[in-house]
């Protein structure tokens, strides 16, 4: 068996979308990513919406971005497929995937909510209020 068939590796991916992308577009893209994760036999552990934040430096002339953070289990081919999709989507200006565990038990996996993220988020009229609140499905 190849190592890549191991489906218990834990990953987390954060991606930044352009601030002017609509909520519907963001949501449907997130659903698409979730679909990809499931199609590859992975499991979504947590999704966090950090809201609209000010970027520390401009990326593609944007000074703000919408951060979405996804924790999931899967294998390397899933990560490759996800990142391919992130690259294709023009609304996504930056993403980062980090391996968080060699083996992840998706049922019991828990971690600190990233409260400090919300603290540093730029308060914006619309979206920032719900920053770091988990998205309910």
């Amino acid at each position: 068996m190849k190592k890549s068939t191991n489906l218990t590796i834990g990953y987390e991916t954060t991606y930044i979308s352009k601030p002017d992308s609509g909520d519907d577009a963001l949501r449907s893209f997130l659903e698409k990513l979730k679909g990809i994760i499931k199609a590859h036999g992975g499991e979504v552990v947590a999704v966090e919406d950090w809201g609209r934040r000010r970027l520390a430096y401009p990326i593609q002339k944007e000074t703000r971005g919408v951060y979405t953070h996804v924790v999931y289990s899967g294998n390397n081919s899933l990560v490759a497929e996800l990142e391919r999709n992130l690259r294709i989507n023009e609304q996504v200006i930056r993403f980062l995937t980090v391996k968080i565990a060699d083996e992840i038990d998706t049922a019991t996996f828990k971690r600190k909510p990233t409260a400090n993220i919300a603290a540093t988020a730029v308060p914006l009229p619309a979206a920032a209020v719900s920053a770091a609140a988990p998205i309910t499905e």
Binding site: I16, L55, A56, G65
Partner: peptide
């Protein structure tokens, strides 16, 4: 991820 900067730690500078 632009959470902290490469030059200057926060969003100052631009």
């Amino acid at each position: 991820l632009a959470l902290v900067g490469y030059i200057g730690f926060s969003s100052g500078g631009y």
